[in-house]
Structure formats: structure tokens, C-alpha cells
Design a protein around this nucleic acid. Structure first.
Lengths: 335, 335
DNA sequence: GTGAAAGCGCTAACAA
DNA sequence: TTGTTAGCGCTTTCAC
């Protein structure tokens, strides 16, 4: 049942049906009602693919998510909400474990004519970067969590350097000097910022932690936090840190699990802090002291930026830095 | 840059370019290479919307998610993975808080010509059900977590009744008799199954819990678990339950938070169990004793079913019941 | 092995 | 206020 069928049955032209479907003016009320009745009777549904072809507006935006972890949930919520409001649909892409899928998946988004893309970065390689360059030169593209060196792309970045300093400052105020650090993957520029903040901070406080006190080999997962904590603590049995900062909440939770497994307790024996403030953080036991990235807001700003670019005539590169806020809860104690 | 441009530049017909784009036979190697070179040079990307219109195959499947919580993450992962493999894209719909959005959002999916839909149910109302009936009569549609009375739709259901009995049996074996129950929303048929299992089980064991021992007003969120636990425990100060079963893990976590806040400890003072085995369950403190729904598998079976229906000629209604498995961890103790 | 041409379902000038 | 018609970018017969 298509627009032609309806037109024929209703005894009008397709143009008139189209006007009715799109609630456009210039149709007499009785004709409009008549057409509407026919559409209803025959369960007519407009084919938005066809419409998209002629208007070259698909009303779809693309979202790339490396994998589904709770970290992204509030962001996706924000995006869905915004898109619902704007009458856009969301098309998903993601690698889901396999790095190789990234390029193909992102390209598909583009080929399917999405009008803009929000890209939550997992990792990059050159192939990826080239594709991003190409796509971002043709349609609105917003990068979240990461930037690309020497390439101007609108992006939203949490202020990881300052955020990390804030939580370290707090730990320091709580009397901690022996602070270990569970860092993030080496491919992650922003992760490096967190690590850099740690190194800088310690230096400023005239503390020189042993090299075995910090590792930046974590993978942002609970498991990797567990094993990195194990690595650090096993190497420092005689010189146990009083506190551990993990580069994200999941790794902090992993560390807490390990500490519990060796019969110690957080924060009684060792304090642990995270970064991100994922949804579970405030309900974990102990409630996690962390640094809040307002994920919902990040998601919202990201889509908003895309829509600004879709609507606006001139697309000027925007860069948004999101401040991070110290969230004091239970997992770091005063010593 | 479209197929016509490429054809003109390459000095061939659009048909030939199309054959090259789609890797079809019947093009001489040198012609093929020549066309490929031109496509590359001019950064040609096929317009999949146009292709979709002519082939009436969009290579997109729709997924409806009520909201983004961790419960759905492994399911979405499974779906993404499967679709990547099958060369399909995923279009998302969801209500995100507002119930009213459901119908419009689902309808959009249909209008955008997705080839099939996986529907993770939040709640239903009549408008919703009518739309689902309509859509499911036209394209492959799989319902997950719920069924519709008197309507035959392929669906995947966790065996909530048996699952709930399994965990209750375990709690009973651990010596618990005073078992309270934090139930799920009244609109949720499957939630009612969990509640029914509780009532049946208690009756079989000749236990008649006070009415204040069970509530099925939870909303599956951590917060609602917290406040329902509060309600139950405050009303039963002199007759405190030794164990609480929550109808999902999030509410169990909420209950644990409340118990902690009143100075008691899980499982020392009160045991708490959940249902679902969400990703955080095995890393919570205490590690959650629960009943596992293999969410990844559920997601996979759901898409698989949709693809079977897309590919298969005859679409016969399939119903899959997913068994649940008792997962014994730390949050329920022997008394 | 290649091209001409019809048409997928719709919108948007333009004409009437 | 309504209809005619030309595409949107692509695939797919059917000739050649």
C-alpha cells in the first residue's frame, strides 16, 4: 500500500496525499478528511526511505559506541531523548569487541546517509582516522572523549587532567602520600592525561613513588582493575600504598574486589578512588569516592552540537571541555 | 558524487558501475579496475538509501529499548555483533523515561523500513499493543521479556517462575524461613510470575509470611529497591526477615544499601538475593547471589529469530523459554 | 560483457 | 485548491 494506491482509491493525486501525510496547507478540509480516512482504512504508512531519497534528509543520526558498558548508558539516554524530541532516529554502530569492525561499521553509518554522527571513541588507528577525516568533512561529526592530533574536528572532552588533580588533591588532604595509580591503555590520549596529572601532582608534592606504584596498562574493565591492583600490591608488600587511584570507576571496583580477596578492606586498610562516577558508583559498597563526569550532559552536548551543525549554515569547529567535579563518598578515608 | 557521475567519468554506463560496486560478475577485469580507480579517486560512496528503495531491502533492523540500563548492555552487545556479521545496521528506538514516546518511536522504526524488530519490553498499554499487532503482522517481530495475551507473536521469555523458585529453594536450604520479597511493577506480567513463584513456594513450605513481608511496587531501579526494603524492614522491626529476595539485582543492591545505612550488614545480619545476574553482580560487595539470565544469549537468540524470519519463507511463531541458573555467591548466608 | 531504460515511493516545482 | 511531472540514486531486466 503506497501513496499511489491511496491516491487512486481516494480519487485524488499523489501530490494531495503527500500534502495530507505531511500536514501541509492547501488541501480543502473535506478532501483532507477523506484522504485521512482512506489512509487509516488501508493502514497506510509512508515509506520514509523513499522520502529520504527525494528530500535528501533521512532524519537519522548515527552514534558510534565501542561497546555497551554502563559508562555509555546515560549518554545514550541523553541522545535518545534529544533525538526523539527532534524527530530523529538513531542508528547505531560499534565494534563490539573486534577492533577491525570499527571502520566498516562507521562507514556503513555514512553510506546509510545519517545526517550527523556522534562518535564515542574507543581506540583509533590510522585507517580509522582517515575515515573520520573524510566523513567529518562531509557531514556533522562530533568526537567525544578524544581528539585527533593535527585535525580540526568538533569534540567534547572531559577535563581529565584537572579532574584527576582534584581527586589527588583530596586524597592528599586526607593524609595519603603513598598513592598508587592504575592507569589506562596506552592508546588512549585522554588516559595519558590522567596519568600525566598523577605524575605532575606527585612531583609537585615532592613525592617520588616507586615505579611499581603505577601502571598504565589497565583496560578500563573491572577485571583489568583487579589484576593491575594485584600486580601493584604484590610488588609492594613491604611498602603498601595507603591509597589507590584508578583511572576509571570500573577499575576501582576491580581493585576493591582484589583488596577484599586478600582479606583487606576498603577504606579501612586501603583507600580506593575512581574517575567517572558511573551509575553504580554511588551505590557500591563502599560508595565510591570519585570524580564526576556528567555523562548525561556530555551526551546531550554532543547531540546538540551535531544538531547545531545540521541546522546552522556555517559550521565552525567547536570544542567543549567538560569540567569534572569531586564527589566525596566513602571509599577514601582520612588517615 | 553519485553513480551517474562516476559512470560518465569512467566512460561506462551506470549499470556497469553498479556491477562493480556490488562485486557482481560480468564485467571485464580491466573495466572493473578502471571503474574502481575512478571511484576511489573521487571518493565515491554508494547511497544505501537509494539502494534500499529499489531493492526494498534496507539492511537495517530495529531494536526497541525502554531505557539504557546495564540490564540491556549484554543484549545490545549480542545484537550489534550479530548484525555486524550479517552486514546489517541497527536502528534504535526507545521511550527514555516518557511512556508516551513508545508508540511514536516504534512506529518510526517501521516507517523507516527496518526489516525486523527486536522489542525489549518496558511496559505496555493498549495503543502499544495495537501497534505491535499491526507491525508484527507485516515484518518479523520478536518480543523479549513479555508476551501479549491472546496474541501470537514470537517471543523470548526467561523462565522467571522456575528461576525464582530456584533461588528460593536455595535460600530455604540455607535455613531461611522469614523471607521477604521485593516485587516488581504491577504492569509487568513476568514480574507477576516472580511474585507468584514466591507465594506458591512459601505456601508449599507451609510458611505464611505477613502481608507486610512482600511488596510488588518496585520499579526495578536501585532506588526503588532501597525504599521498598525500608518499607518492609520498618514495618517488621520486631519480626525482622532473615532474608530478602528482590525481583531483580538492582533492587537487591538498593536493599543492601538500605541495610547498610541502618547499620546492619549483608549477609551477616540479613541475606539478600537478586534475579538477573547483571554485569556488576559478580563484583558487588558482597558478591550477589542471584539467578542468571544469560542476557547475551537472550539478545543473540532474539536477533537470530528475527533473521530466521527475514530469511525463511514461512514464518512460524516461535517461542523460546530461557532457563535460569542459580548463581551462588556471597550475599546469602547459611543460618 | 555492456548499455538503455524502467521504476522503487516519494516530494516539489510548476501549471492549471 | 489540485494535478502533472520530473526527478532523488540506485538496481535490474532486456536488448544488443
Amino acid at each position: 500500500m503506497n501513496i499511489k494506491d491511496i491516491a487512486k482509491i481516494a480519487g485524488v493525486s499523489t501530490a494531495t496525499v503527500s500534502r495530507v501525510v505531511n500536514n501541509k496547507q492547501g488541501v480543502k478540509d473535506d478532501v483532507r478528511n477523506h484522504v485521512k480516512k482512506i489512509m487509516e482504512k488501508y493502514d497506510y504508512t509512508p515509506n520514509l526511505v523513499a522520502r529520504g531519497l527525494v528530500t535528501s534528509k533521512t532524519n537519522v543520526i548515527g552514534v558510534f559506541v565501542p561497546r555497551f558498558v554502563d559508562y555509555y548508558s546515560p549518554r545514550l539516554d541523553a541522545i535518545m531523548e534529544y533525538c526523539n524530541k527532534e524527530n530523529y532516529a538513531v542508528m547505531l554502530a560499534g565494534s563490539v569487541g573486534k577492533f577491525e569492525g570499527n571502520v566498516k561499521s562507521l562507514n556503513t553509518l555514512y553510506e546509510k546517509q545519517v545526517e550527523g554522527i556522534v562518535y564515542f571513541v574507543g581506540k583509533f588507528d590510522d585507517e580509522n582516522i582517515n575515515l573520520i577525516k573524510k566523513i567529518s568533512s562531509k557531514i556533522p561529526f562530533v568526537l567525544v572523549d578524544q581528539t585527533i592530533k593535527n585535525v580540526e574536528i568538533p569534540h567534547i572532552l572531559p577535563d581529565n587532567y584537572e579532574g584527576t588533580r582534584k581527586i589527588l588533591e583530596y586524597m592528599y588532604e586526607c593524609g595519603h602520600r603513598k598513592i598508587a595509580f592504575i592507569g589506562s591503555p596506552v592508546y588512549d590520549i585522554e588516559g595519558e592525561n590522567r596519568f600525566k596529572a598523577y605524575i605532575d601532582f606527585m612531583k609537585e608534592k615532592d613525592i617520588t613513588p616507586d615505579k611499581s606504584y603505577y601502571r598504565y596498562s589497565g583496560k578500563y574493565s573491572i577485571k583489568s582493575g583487579y589484576f593491575t591492583a594485584k600486580l601493584i600490591l604484590e610488588e609492594n608488600i613491604r611498602n603498601r600504598p595507603t591509597a589507590i587511584l584508578a583511572a576509571n570507576d570500573f577499575m576501582a571496583i576491580g581493585a576493591i574486589n582484589y583488596i577484599k580477596d586478600i582479606g583487606l578492606s576498603v577504606p579501612k586498610d586501603i583507600s580506593v578512588a575512581g574517575i567517572d562516577d558511573v551509575p553504580i558508583a554511588s551505590y557500591y559498597n563502599p560508595r565510591l569516592t570519585t570524580v564526576k563526569q556528567d555523562q548525561y550532559k556530555i551526551g546531550k552536548e554532543a547531540v546538540k552540537l551535531v544538531f547545531d551543525m545540521i541546522k546552522g549554515d556555517k559550521v565552525k569547529i567547536k570544542k567543549i571541555i567538560m569540567e569534572q567535579e569531586l564527589i566525596v563518598r566513602e571509599s577514601v578515608k582520612m588517615i
